[in-house]
Design a protein around this nucleic acid. Structure first.
Lengths: 188, 188
DNA sequence: AGTGTTAGTCTACAAGTGATGACATCGAGC
DNA sequence: GCTCGATGTCATCACTTGTAGACTAACACT
């Protein structure tokens, strides 16, 4: 990472910054990740964030939009263990994980908060609420939000490694338990 | 709050600072609450935090120890809806809520992180793990930590009001749904 | 080789943080 | 009424954060 000088390639540098931002935002939330850390992780100068994205906030907003065209802004079924496993594993590839932090702690920057919540609603809360409604829950919305909040807590706790067993558990294990819970909550 | 000048009473001022700190730490986490905000909420000068507690970190550590001798460092059964209701309602009186943030985001200050985790373990994770073990779960620890992580997410999301239905739901409603989940997870 | 655009580096700044210590002011005890 | 310790106020510090802008270095093209 250190010795070899890299070829000059703005597009590649931009992509490295975006990738590093995705990982760090997912791990530590928006306020928790500094531009200097992101720059270091991407092996690029932090000032380039302002140049290529406009601001840290804009970088965050862009990090919410998955690049892998595959997943887009498509809804996510959190009661499916396999889907959930993918979400946990693919922290870095632009999953909804960065957005989950918006539920846990209100972001200082309004633009950032709004963008994150929009992603959260579209991809996680709305699908869950639909499912709960179909199952006949009168408090479908509450149940959906509760499930997403719980998921946010689980993923955040996993990435801090503050809770040992949770930090060390495989994505599949965690996903299986969590999906079971959400199924119970949303389709009783 | 503004007009009437208060009598000079160091003990009372200290108590007001502690109360304000409990509320704000519970709502926004350790890093999210500033000493200036705490001072304003307590109607006291922020500099008094350093004088009376030593530092913001020490204030946080003290805020983890409930003052109401009642609850002490006693274990909390998160599968009991009534108990959980109390935890949600009594954010400000020194419940374990401030400590829950330690699971979600690692604190900058090591002393703070350690103290919060210790509280978390003693009061929430250990009792839950014991219960799961008694129920015969091989992955009791993981289940216990998962439950606590989920609880942390739910309470944090509630206090941000980022998720509307969750933010507006009554403590009892939230507690009932959450307790059901945890029961399912810990005593299947 | 020379040149001009692009890519990257570095210094510096304003705003906000927790903390410190000098100063002002109250009020109990003589 | 005075004094002096206790209590509260204020200006300021060192540090971190995001951002801006001047500067340097590399590459493409003639």
């Amino acid at each position: 990472m250190s010795g070899a000088r890299r070829a000059r390639d703005a597009q590649d540098t931009r992509a490295r910054l975006l990738a590093a931002a995705r990982t760090l935002f997912a791990e530590r939330g928006y306020e928790g990740a500094t531009v200097r850390e992101i720059g270091q992780a991407a092996d690029a100068d932090p000032a380039l964030i302002a140049r290529y994205f406009g601001s840290k906030a804009a970088l965050y907003v862009e990090s919410l939009r998955p690049s892998g065209a595959a997943t887009g802004q498509s809804p996510i079924d959190i009661t499916e263990a396999t889907v959930l496993t993918g979400v946990i594993e693919r922290l870095r590839e632009g999953g909804p994980t960065p957005a989950l932090h918006a539920a846990l702690r209100r972001h200082d920057n309004d633009e950032v908060q709004e963008a994150a919540l929009a992603t959260l609603m579209t991809r996680l809360v709305d699908p869950a609420a639909t499912r709960a409604t179909e199952a006949g829950s009168p408090d479908a919305r509450l149940r959906a939000e509760l499930a997403v909040a719980a998921l946010a807590g689980i993923l955040a706790s996993r990435s801090t490694h503050a809770l040992e067993a949770l930090g060390n558990a495989s994505p599949a294990e965690v996903a299986a338990l969590a999906a079971g819970l959400f199924e119970e909550l949303l389709a009783p």
